[in-house]
């Protein structure tokens, strides 16, 4: 379990992580989301003590990371930035980490195989492709059989097969009772893996919710109904907490009732419908909506480039 309490990090006078509290529970996959520069990687570095918080604290399995006798056994980490010497082979890199904890050579071979690196284990890491480097990072995160697995953008650079592998791996780890935390910018990808969501922007907590709740809220985009008897249907559907708008004489946008209800009411009163479409907001759109005000690096609209050219 990871518990962050009022975690704050400043670099100079820039507050990168701001009073952030969240919990990553065992047996769950927690997705850690936020736009570029939101402070995800900084938070993860603080979890494993590489950066020290300006204020607040974070504990891993009940104590601060450095106080554990076998830290890698508590939490295995894949960091965003390269954390390997390119001149060493994958095997020797893992072995060097294994020695610090008294981990056997057999276990090293095991994680190499698990990560699908057997054929390149003796090669210099510097010659690895992005995806192979990522696999090595995941192998070192799993090396000491950790109770918590924390991965910073694990699918970055992986091919579709690799993405699927990571998804199944993390699901399996959580089902074994481990706590899994992974960061991403991709809401839709994360929703496939995660149970829980911690969303931040500019270092601040924006949402601490479950994927189910988030998805449910995201789909509250209303239902589009088309009928020749728009006026009649409008009065039939009206009620408290229900808003109905229309963009043309034969179209209604209804929020507060789902498509099934609307269809039933219309049938009951003999109103013919020729369109009945739930307006699903994509998870990505919902995420962007949530983080719109806090994106650090806003892109210029694409057409300005054309103007400049």
């Amino acid at each position: 379990m990871i518990e962050a309490r009022e975690l704050t990090k400043r670099y100079g006078d820039k507050t990168v992580v701001d009073n952030l509290s969240f919990t990553v529970k065992a047996g769950e996959v927690t997705g850690f989301l936020g736009p570029n520069g939101a402070g995800k990687s900084t938070t993860m570095r603080m979890v494993v003590g590489l950066d020290s918080p300006t204020k607040g604290s974070v504990t891993v399995g009940g104590r601060s990371y450095a106080k554990h006798a076998a830290p890698l056994h508590e939490i295995g980490t894949l960091l965003e930035a390269k954390s390997v010497h390119p001149g060493r082979s994958a095997f020797n890199h893992l072995m060097a980490l294994a020695y610090t904890h008294g981990i056997s050579r057999r276990r090293v071979d095991e994680v190499i195989e698990l990560a699908g690196l057997t054929s390149v284990a003796g090669k210099r890491v510097g010659a690895f492709s992005l995806g192979m480097g990522q696999r090595l990072g995941i192998a070192s995160a799993l090396l000491a059989d950790p109770a918590i697995v924390m991965l910073d953008e694990p699918v970055n650079g992986l091919d579709p097969e690799g993405v699927l592998w990571v998804r199944n791996l993390l699901r399996g780890l959580a089902d074994e009772g481990r706590a899994v935390m992974l960061s991403s910018h991709l809401m839709s990808e994360t929703a496939l893996i995660a149970d829980h969501l911690v969303i931040i922007g500019r270092g601040r907590l924006l949402a601490d919710t479950t994927v189910d709740d988030f998805t449910r809220e995201a789909s509250g985009g209303g239902v589009r109904v088309a009928t020749t008897e728009a006026r009649k249907l409008r009065s039939l559907l009206a009620g408290p907490d229900i808003t109905i708008s229309s963009s043309s004489a034969e179209e209604l946008l209804v929020t507060g009732r789902d498509a099934r209800e609307i269809g039933a009411i219309a049938a009951q009163h003999g109103v013919a419908l020729y369109e009945l479409t739930p307006q699903a907001v994509s998870l990505e759109a919902a995420f962007m909506d949530l983080t719109r005000d806090v994106v650090e690096y806003q892109s210029a609209p694409a057409d300005t480039e054309r103007k400049a050219a």
């Binding site: 006798a69 076998a70 830290p71 890698l72 056994h73 010497h85 001149g87 060493r88 082979s89 020797n92 072995m95 060097a96 980490l97 020695y99 610090t100 904890h101 008294g102 981990i103 000491a144 059989d145």
Partner: peptide, 23 residues
Amino acid sequence: TTKYKVTGIRVLRSEWSKFWTLR
């Protein structure tokens, strides 16, 4: 796996191996 533990000797062993595994 609870035998895992960081000790001074093990860190030394790790650094020893790092020393010899870089060309």
